[in-house]
Every structure is written in structure tokens, then in C-alpha cells.
Design a protein around this nucleic acid. Structure first.
Lengths: 98, 98
DNA sequence: ATAATAATTAGACATCGGCCTAATTAAGCG
DNA sequence: CGCTTAATTAGGCCGATGTCTAATTATTAT
């Protein structure tokens, strides 16, 4: 359960910010790159790490690549944290259907 | 908001396991170290990282040092993940009293 | 086919991180 | 005090990680 990859992936601030930018929908690699003071290859590397951890999806559309948030793996992290706290806001468990 | 330290801290499997062992109460450094195939100094290093991230508390009692889980920072991680998902199991916000 | 644009892959470089052994601090006991 | 036990600090080693420039792939348009 829960490979180490997601945790490694979110340990970098740039990558967490990328995920944050994807909260409200897909964005192209270029769009994302614009928000950071970093070269495109460096950004590309971060995308690859997030992709490898399955935290984001990607699809090509013409020349551009659209990245999107994969909430499934984020939920794993969430579950890990909740389990640590021992409870807090879990239990019941049927309110995730929306 | 949310320094990088907690995320770096939980990016290591050994440290996550340490946190897991502390779920049910305090443990001494020695107790914790026993569970891992690693030297005590290495374990001590992990404790220091967790402490620095404020994920654990520590208090000396005689020769031993007792470590305990600090759920406050874990909740920050939880909040970050929930915010990413956009909802999921937050909302209402007063259910943390149970 | 050539050129332009979007993005990645390749490779180098410096720093960070995790692990080890050896030495040190801290506390308890004869 | 001198010895033992619990744990940390110091310092070195080496692989992993983040960043950059240069080169490459993929797509579209002229």
C-alpha cells in the first residue's frame, strides 16, 4: 500500500504548487511553467516526477500537453494522515460520493 | 503556512513508520529503534528530523527519551491534501470535537 | 522540406539526504 | 569516582535530487 513515490513527489515545494495550480482544472505544460522562475526542462522534470507518482494525468493535444490532477493518489496521502491522527474527520465514510 | 519541513520529513518511509508506531502513545528512542534494522545514530537522526518538523514531541525521563506524536502538524498535511481534493471530507468544520 | 513552436530527453554539476563508525553527553549505580 | 546504559553529535561516504544548457522529438504551418 502507498508506495513511497507520492510522498517523495510532494516533498518538493514547486511540485506542490503545481498540484495546487491544477486544482481547478487542466493546464498545459507551458501555462504551468510560466508561473515559476525556472527553465522549462526543469519544469518538465517535475511533471515527470508527479506523473511517475501518478499524482497527475497527461494528454497531448496538438503541440501542447495538458496536465490534470489525479485526486486518487492525493486521497491515499489523506488517508495516511487521517490514520495517523486516529480519527478526526473520517468515520461514516459515505460522504465522499459527491 | 505549512513550511516545507513536514513534507520533507514524511517523505522518508522510516520516518513515516516511526510516526505510525507513535499513534498509540509515546515510546522511548530505544523502543522505536528496536523496530528497525538500522543503527541507533541513524534512528537518532530521523528523530531529529521529525522533531525539527515538529511532528513529534520529546521529553527526557531519566536516561530515556520519550517521543510522542504531535498531531497538529499532521493536520496541516491533512488540510493541504483536502484543499487539493477541493472538498471530499471537509466542510461543516465542527465535526472535530468527536 | 524548412521553419517555428511546445515540450521533452540527455548529460553535467552541486547540493541534499540517509547511513555508517567513532566519539561524546547524560543519567544512574556500585 | 569509575562503569554501564541510553541516546546524541561529529564527520565521512555515496547515492538521490534539483537545476541548468544543449540537443532532440513532435506538431503545425508556410
Amino acid at each position: 500500500m502507498s508506495s513511497n513515490q507520492p510522498f517523495k513527489a510532494i516533498s518538493d515545494p514547486t511540485r506542490r504548487e503545481i498540484l495546487g495550480l491544477l486544482r481547478h482544472g487542466e493546464k498545459t505544460a507551458g501555462d504551468l511553467a510560466e508561473h515559476f522562475d525556472m527553465t522549462k526542462p526543469s519544469m518538465s522534470h517535475h511533471f515527470a516526477v508527479l506523473k511517475e507518482a501518478d499524482l497527475i494525468t497527461s494528454r497531448r493535444e496538438g503541440q501542447q500537453i495538458w496536465y490534470g490532477l489525479n485526486t486518487t493518489v492525493v486521497q491515499d496521502v489523506l488517508a495516511w494522515a487521517m490514520d495517523l491522527i486516529g480519527d478526526g474527520k473520517k468515520r461514516g465514510g459515505s460522504d465522499d460520493s459527491e
